[in-house]
């Protein structure tokens, strides 16, 4: 028996999408530190190799283009064959295609909805059968503060992230009786490649809206995800944990 209700994932198999860098990488590393074996996905071969390199003996990187026909089912089957089961799924892979709605192309809308929302539906569906059979599973969807607040230039991204919350709640209700929890973590502004692109001026303006007056660290998102993946969070489901330095309080 595990001595700790939080942060002990000994013997568990976790799948983390979009694990090359940033928040996904921090989650994969936190899981490894907690004793899990991690399969991290990337869109490119190079990305998958980089994941394998940082995971070492504790997991493997695999390529996954969530929008490619059949790719999700093939990956899940592959992982289940190789590792026997999937205990924890973290849907972290996401993209942005920002534009004011007046100028937003159908293509920009569809790419974001397909990658950030439709793919989550498909991956969850593919892992559910195994989790329900095992009477144990953890699904954690990475949302965003803007799914709650909205953000100009990101109608597509905000719609996908808000949709993710409704999806999370519905699936949580469907499979709670099988010992599978489904939750979301909604990061605010986190220090990743995405926010490194901001100018000093932009950063200053963002800081004005964050009571904590700094960007969050990827590890601070990973900590919330690790909690939800832990045995101690078995009674938390359908919930969204906001990690944003106080910039929005739900």
């Amino acid at each position: 028996m595990s001595s700790s209700l939080i942060g002990n994932l000994d013997g568990q198999i976790a799948l983390v999408t979009g694990a090359t860098r940033g928040i996904g990488k921090a989650i994969a590393e936190a899981f490894v530190a907690a004793g899990a074996t991690v399969i991290g996905t990337a869109t490119s071969e190079n990305g998958a190799a980089a994941i394998s390199a940082y995971l070492g003996d504790h997991g493997v990187g695999k390529t996954l283009d969530v929008t490619a026909e059949g790719a999700i089912d093939a990956l899940i089957a592959d992982v289940q064959n190789e590792f026997g089961k999937i205990d924890i799924l973290v849907n972290n892979a996401g993209i942005t295609r920002d534009n004011l709605l007046m100028r937003m192309k159908d293509d920009e809308w569809e790419q974001v909805i397909n990658t950030n929302l439709t793919a989550v539906f498909k991956i969850c569906k593919a892992v559910m059968r195994g989790m329900m059979k095992n009477r144990h599973g953890r699904i954690i969807n990475i949302g965003s503060v803007v799914g709650t607040t909205g953000n100009p230039g990101q109608a597509n991204y905000c719609a996908a992230k808000a949709g993710l919350i409704g999806f999370t709640k519905s699936l949580a209700k469907e499979i709670a009786s099988r010992g599978v929890t489904v939750n979301a973590v909604a990061p605010g502004f986190i220090d990743t490649d995405m926010t490194k692109a901001l100018t000093d001026d932009q950063r200053e303006r963002i800081f004005d809206t964050i009571p904590a007056a700094r960007l969050g660290k990827p590890e601070e998102i990973a900590a919330a995800v690790l909690f939800l993946a832990s045995s101690g969070a078995a009674y938390v489901t359908g919930e969204t944990i906001h990690v944003n330095g106080g910039m929005n309080m739900a």
């Binding site: 059968r129 329900m132 469907e174 499979i175 009786s177 099988r178």
Partner: peptide
């Protein structure tokens, strides 16, 4: 059986 049980049974 509830609706989820019957889906699992069919699976």
């Amino acid at each position: 059986a509830d609706s989820l049980d019957t889906v699992e049974l069919v699976m």
